[in-house]
Amino acid sequence: MIQKEIVLLNKLGLHIRPAAQFTKIAAKYKADVYLIRDGMRVNAKSIMGVMMLAAGQGTKLALECIGEDEEQLCNELMALIENKFHEE
């Protein structure tokens, strides 16, 4: 299992479009992915789950990847977050 602390730097946070980009990547992998915010843990392959986190700009989250391809998955998601979801 890989666990990472992340901070959302993009303007929209995990609004529906960024959330869709996130879940699209998550769905490609076998590993399970979770996002955790203040004790709320959601399946990051679910767009409704991700939206439920109400994660706006500046939100701190924990990202958890569990499964055989967890490392590539984690890397791809981290790259998306670091590139601010290509918003700007």
């Binding site: 529906i16 869709a20 879940t23 769905a27 399946n43 392959k45 679910s46 767009i47 409704m48 789950g49």
Partner: peptide, 12 residues
């Protein structure tokens, strides 16, 4: 578009 994403939510 958002509705399509909700409908096709894999976890749902």
């Amino acid at each position: 578009d958002a509705h399509l994403m909700i409908l096709d939510d894999v976890v749902f």
